[in-house]
Computed example of a mutant assay.
Amino acid sequence: MQIGKVLLSSSVSLAALFLLTKILGNREMSQLSMFDYISSIAIGAIAGEMAALSTDNLIEPLFSMVFLSLCTLCINYLTCKSIKLRRFIEGQALILYQNGQIYEKNLLHAKIDIGELLAVCRLQGYFDLEEIYSIYLESNGQISILPKSAKRPLTPSDINLNPVQSKPMANVIIDGHILKGNLQSTGKDETWLIKRIQQKGVLDIKEIILATYDSTKDDINIYLKSHKKMKNDIFE
């Protein structure tokens, strides 16, 4: 019976943690503020202890998890309304380099050495600091780089071109199933879709692993399932 109680408390803990995470919002770890990160650790720790408790003592940890989640929501709301509070809770961007000048004190404050800074630059495709105008450490811990105008990639506007605006592809079939809501948003119906599939030589919709709608071409791109196993790895 003890195993059954542990399984029940673990299930309740997991369900509560999932629901509270959905309420707090979907954000990557790199996008969390320091307060969000701390509250997430606290809620996770309570959920871990809750999983090991008997079913008679679930109310108190559940209340603690809900209370911490409400505090996090309130702080997030207030930081959206107040610039001063947002700067206090989340911090500000810190300039590390600008126009040939490396700010050593800011690097020390950010606990980043020059080797790590250069490594981040290389990972973003810059092997020479002379190609960069400024480097910032953002409040979420990410490093952003502004290249010099003469070193940035060429854009169509630089050569007076005005290309047609591309739009996101709409997934209309996944794993052999038609996504009716996505298809409807494109202004097409199933009759049109099936006709286009047949015109491309596909007779069984179940053989399609992915089909996307391209609004610029008013056509679909089809990717069929492959039952062959790829044995050769060209990257090793």
Rank of each mutant, 00 (worst) to 15 (best):
9 S>K: 04
9 S>E: 01
11 S>C: 07
14 L>Y: 11
16 A>R: 07
18 F>L: 14
22 K>N: 14
24 L>R: 07
29 M>W: 14
29 M>C: 01
32 L>T: 00
32 L>N: 02
36 D>L: 12
40 S>W: 04
46 I>D: 08
49 E>V: 03
49 E>M: 12
50 M>K: 03
53 L>Q: 14
53 L>T: 10
54 S>L: 09
54 S>C: 13
56 D>N: 06
56 D>H: 12
57 N>P: 01
62 L>W: 13
64 S>R: 04
66 V>T: 12
66 V>D: 06
72 T>Q: 15
83 I>R: 15
84 K>G: 03
88 F>W: 15
88 F>M: 13
96 L>Q: 04
98 Q>Y: 05
99 N>I: 00
101 Q>C: 06
104 E>S: 11
109 H>W: 12
111 K>L: 10
114 I>Y: 13
116 E>M: 07
117 L>F: 03
119 A>E: 08
127 F>T: 04
129 L>Y: 14
130 E>W: 13
132 I>S: 05
132 I>T: 05
134 S>P: 09
136 Y>E: 09
139 S>V: 06
139 S>F: 09
142 Q>D: 01
147 P>G: 00
153 P>M: 00
154 L>W: 03
157 S>K: 11
160 N>L: 14
161 L>F: 05
163 P>E: 00
164 V>R: 02
167 K>V: 04
168 P>Y: 10
170 A>M: 06
170 A>W: 04
172 V>H: 06
173 I>W: 12
174 I>A: 15
176 G>F: 11
177 H>I: 13
180 K>F: 08
184 Q>W: 02
184 Q>T: 01
184 Q>L: 06
186 T>Y: 02
189 D>C: 00
189 D>G: 12
189 D>L: 01
190 E>S: 14
193 L>H: 10
196 R>A: 02
197 I>E: 07
198 Q>R: 15
198 Q>N: 13
199 Q>W: 10
200 K>C: 06
200 K>G: 07
201 G>Y: 09
205 I>Y: 08
210 L>M: 14
214 D>A: 11
215 S>R: 08
217 K>L: 05
217 K>T: 11
218 D>Y: 00
219 D>H: 08
220 I>S: 15
223 Y>H: 13
225 K>S: 09
226 S>K: 13
226 S>V: 08
230 M>R: 12
230 M>F: 09
